[in-house]
Amino acid sequence: MGALMNFAIFPIDKGDHIGEYVSKVVKHIKESGLTYQFGPMGTIIEAETVTELLKIVDEAYKIMDPISDRIYCVMNMDYNKNKSGMIKAKTESVEKRIGKVAK
């Protein structure tokens, strides 16, 4: 079973340079032990269950709450009871057709 989430969270009351705040959440994701892939517009996270992914979202809000009075979050999920390793599989599916993609 596999759950995949594309996720971004950041304060919108801290100006244009928010890497300092976003990095706190990315560090937490990294330390969670879940498979993830960081990108410039969000982070893809893979877990066995949706509950695990929602826990990451909740923890991210707890990280941002003391930092900001206004927090923006966007996410989308793909849950498949019959698959795991979806980050790798989805990437390989496209690369099989067009060759290596930039990471």
Rank of each mutant, 00 (worst) to 15 (best):
G99T: 03
A89E: 15
S93A: 15
D13A: 02
L4N: 07
I63Y: 08
N82D: 15
N6H: 13
Y61H: 13
V94G: 06
E48Q: 12
M75P: 05
Y21M: 04
R97T: 12
P40R: 13
D13S: 06
I12M: 08
K14V: 04
L34T: 04
G85D: 10
N76T: 15
E48P: 10
D16R: 14
D78C: 15
M64G: 00
G2K: 03
A47G: 07
F38R: 08
G19P: 06
V94N: 07
K62N: 05
I9D: 00
G15F: 09
I67F: 04
I18L: 08
I67D: 01
K62D: 03
V101Q: 11
L54A: 08
E92C: 09
A60V: 00
T51K: 15
S23P: 05
D69I: 02
A89L: 10
P11S: 06
V74K: 14
M64K: 01
N82Q: 12
I29R: 01
F7H: 02
I12N: 09
V94W: 10
N80K: 15
A89H: 09
A8T: 14
Y61A: 00
K27M: 05
K14P: 01
P11H: 03
E59Q: 07
M86Y: 05
K96E: 12
N82C: 10
D13I: 04
I45N: 01
G15S: 03
P11N: 05
D13M: 03
I71G: 01
E48G: 14
D65Y: 04
L34S: 03
K55T: 15
I56K: 00
E52N: 10
K81Q: 12
I63P: 06
I87L: 10
I67E: 10
